[in-house]
Design a protein around this nucleic acid. Structure first.
Lengths: 280, 280
DNA sequence: TATAATAATGACTAATTGGTCATTTGTCAA
DNA sequence: TTGACAAATGACCAATTAGTCATTATTATA
């Protein structure tokens, strides 16, 4: 629906300037040139807009990062691909990124907090997948490495978002981050985060895990929305695969290839890839 | 004034739960058991409370970190001292720390943002002082190292603040962070942040620099407030030193020793130390 | 005890908030 | 042209906000 998109686009600008809380529905509707009532025809509440907003961006970004990493033919490229794609994603969606990093730690909204930590755990999964393909000096530093990689990301992204430093060369940034990570992997010996404390971190996330039923619902929705015949058919076939639990990974993998480049399908492709641990 | 302290103590609890914006003056006064009018006898506005609040904690914390680093007899200890003192400070003031890290990137309040970036630049100064005493593989990675150290701090502090991971062993955390930093210093070759971009970062901070006049005003205020005779006399003498610009660093250094352990004097001691680049 | 000075109160204002709903406007087919 | 239905409006509501100020309570002084 075109009105929904308009509201999101305009809300994006206001949220970036002021954050979620400080932006009123009135401001959004004024900025859209529509009435307050019209807003509530598109979204049940301000909260629903915020959640949709975060979902929309995070699904794209995470699916992009995951697919770029999982598509690496050599495990040597993973780290570099990860840093490049991640920085690129935040650069391309810099207005959203600004909001995301601000609200991540701040918001009081319980609903939103759960969403954010859900996506955070997905990022952790991707990074841990990469770390498992690195050669570590001490296997026990694994979770410290995870934390450090996230620290690198956070702090370099801050440079562009808070200090508005112009991003000159994404390639150098990537190389610099890859080097740092590899150095830590190679020479770190003193872990701080144990497996147990890592478990505590993971337990924080409530199980919004994706069972087949939820994925099938997503697929059905997409089948209605999507025009392209190949994507449509692939989705139908994927739906069948998920319903009859006897299915070939090869077929699923092939079908995913057909849909994964369609922006609307990215997220569902990611969920299925994750469900069946499909890589490379 | 005792009422001011009461308000701060109670506000601390509410701010930690809800943040600055979401906490109303009414809530604070209810929590204090005083009337709304009484609040405005102590603080001109909610904004003034917030600024005082941040000032109060940050001055203590930064003065502590700086003095612990500058007091190191061996430059080998600096890094470890820095990480230990910093983590300890955030642990001891964990309620404040939680607020600080949340508001740092979020707040819309221009006034507050300026304060926060002022203190941020002070932390940068301390870290750069430490880095100047490290042996770097490539001198050009200096500013990247600064950024990484800040990333380490941010992300490990988050563990305790957001995920509420119990902090078991501060010594191990310190050792782990020291190792990581030393490794990066020793092996990093690819800088991303140039001297020029570092300059851009520094230029962000408006010059709230401390000239003698401001420092003297602070001293005069302290002389009135403070009881202890030695601190009082030392402050008087320091004031004279600052007024007559012909002064001996040795005398100033000695006088600072007399006052630096008094919580009320810490900040002014820090400012003087910084003004005359007094170390060790 | 009487007077002056200070401290504290809480009802009040004006503005803003998210959200509602009776009313109006626009767009069709008949 | 009419009538039916959907889309859009914005005045309105109850709640909440920061901040004020005439009034009252408390304390110190004479």
């Amino acid at each position: 629906m075109v009105k929904k998109q308009l509201i999101m686009d305009k809300a994006l600008e206001l949220f970036a300037k002021q954050g979620f809380e400080a932006t009123s529905v009135q401001q959004i509707t004024d900025h859209c040139g529509i009435s307050k009532g019209a807003f509530y025809l598109s979204y049940k509440s301000k909260d629903e807009l915020i959640i949709s907003f975060v979902d929309c961006f995070m699904k794209q970004i995470i699916a992009d990062i995951d697919s770029s990493v999982k598509d690496c033919s050599h495990s040597d490229d993973m780290l570099s691909t990860f840093f490049y794609t991640t920085n690129k994603a935040f650069q391309d969606n810099s207005t959203f990124a600004k909001i995301f990093f601000k609200e991540q730690t701040h918001t009081v909204n319980e609903n939103l907090l759960n969403r954010l930590s859900y996506y955070d755990s997905k990022v952790n999964d991707i990074i841990l997948y990469i770390i498992d393909h690195l050669v570590l000096e001490n296997e026990k530093t694994k979770f410290d490495l995870l934390i450090c990689i996230k620290g690198f990301m956070k702090v370099y992204v801050d440079l562009f978002l808070i200090y508005e430093l112009p991003l000159l060369d994404l390639d150098i940034l990537t190389k610099s981050l890859v080097e740092k990570t590899n150095i830590l992997a190679k020479y770190s010996t003193i872990p701080f985060i144990t497996k147990e404390s890592a478990q505590i971190l993971q337990d924080h996330i409530e199980g919004t895990d994706n069972n087949s039923k939820q994925i099938i619902e997503l697929i059905e929705q997409l089948i209605i929305e999507i025009e392209e015949p190949i994507e449509k058919e692939s989705l139908e076939l994927l739906k069948n695969c998920l319903q009859s639990e006897n299915n070939s990974l090869a077929i699923i993998k092939g079908l995913l290839e057909n849909i994964k480049n369609n922006p609307q399908c990215k997220w569902v492709a990611y969920l299925i890839r994750e469900k069946y641990s499909i890589q490379q």
